[in-house]
Computed example of a mutant assay.
Amino acid sequence: MQSNQTNETWFQSTAARDIHLEQLKRAELFNGRAAMLGIVIGILTEGLTGAGIAHQIGLGALIDGYAACRTQFLPFCF
């Protein structure tokens, strides 16, 4: 009887692990596809508007400020 319960527990844990791995694979596949779609849309928008991806998502001021600091246009840059 003990052996039967041990086998049943092993099968249940193996099945649960397999289900979890399948769900993880599906989630990663979805995330990868969403990332690829986002990059393509960003590149197409950049080509149409001329605004880079950083400007499209609202980080343009950081990029512009970094460029100004690198060229010594701002006296308060580190």
Rank of each mutant, 00 (worst) to 15 (best):
R17A: 11
Q2L: 07
A16S: 12
S3P: 02
G42S: 15
L21W: 01
M1L: 06
M36Q: 15
A35P: 00
I63Q: 15
N31E: 15
E8V: 02
C77E: 05
Q56N: 07
I53Y: 06
L21C: 05
G58R: 04
T6S: 14
F76K: 03
T6H: 09
C69D: 09
I53S: 01
A51V: 13
E8Y: 08
S3C: 06
G47P: 02
L44T: 12
R26Y: 01
D18Q: 08
I57Q: 06
A54C: 06
A51F: 15
A35N: 03
T71N: 07
E28Q: 13
D18L: 14
F73I: 06
N7T: 02
D64A: 15
G58C: 04
A68F: 02
G42V: 04
N7P: 03
D18M: 06
C69Y: 04
W10F: 06
L59F: 15
N7H: 00
E22M: 09
G38L: 15
E8S: 10
F73Q: 08
A15G: 04
I63N: 03
L37S: 12
I41E: 15
W10S: 10
S13I: 08
C77H: 05
L62F: 02
F11Q: 11
E46C: 10
R70M: 15
L29M: 07
I19V: 13
R26F: 02
F78K: 09
F78E: 09
L48W: 11
L21V: 11
L24D: 09
G52H: 03
L44V: 14
L48I: 13
E8F: 10
R33F: 08
H55L: 06
G38Q: 14
R33W: 03
T9R: 12
Q5M: 11
A35T: 00
